[in-house]
């Protein structure tokens, strides 16, 4: 699945790096707890979260993630957007809640990964 597909499925607004919408993602992880995300090992994954602070971008950076989806209408601030731009990450915002967002992406074929 491409980041562009995620954007369409979740009817999401692109906040930054729309030049990277064709990036492939192979797995997804949804959590507001960053340590849970850090326990998750998958290549080229996307993070869905309702948490808004700079550590969301740092966590995605450490995990080599290329896309962050903010659910239930949450929006990153300017500082976070600049951090994401520098780190080649697409940021998406959707009004869908976490459960609905994950369900829609799962139905479309995207899978999670097990924390080992």
């Amino acid at each position: 699945m491409k980041v562009r597909d995620i954007q369409e499925i979740l009817n999401a607004e692109v906040i930054c790096r729309d030049d990277l919408l064709d990036t492939e993602v192979y797995a997804a992880c949804g959590s507001d707890m960053m340590s849970d995300v850090l326990a998750f090992v998958k290549e080229q994954a996307v993070m869905l979260t309702g948490l808004v602070n700079p550590q969301v971008v740092r966590t995605a950076e450490m995990m080599d993630m290329h896309c962050i989806v903010f659910v239930r209408g949450k929006r990153p601030d300017l500082n976070m957007i600049e951090m994401a731009e520098d780190r080649d990450m697409v940021m998406l915002c959707t009004d869908c809640e976490m459960f609905t967002s994950c369900g829609k992406l799962y139905s479309a074929g995207l899978r999670g990964g097990s924390a080992q």
Binding site: D32, M33, S35, D36, L38, L51, N53, V56
Partner: peptide, 8 residues
């Protein structure tokens, strides 16, 4: 803030 899950 997204931490303190006891996973550190």
């Amino acid at each position: 803030l997204g931490f303190g899950a006891g996973m550190g």
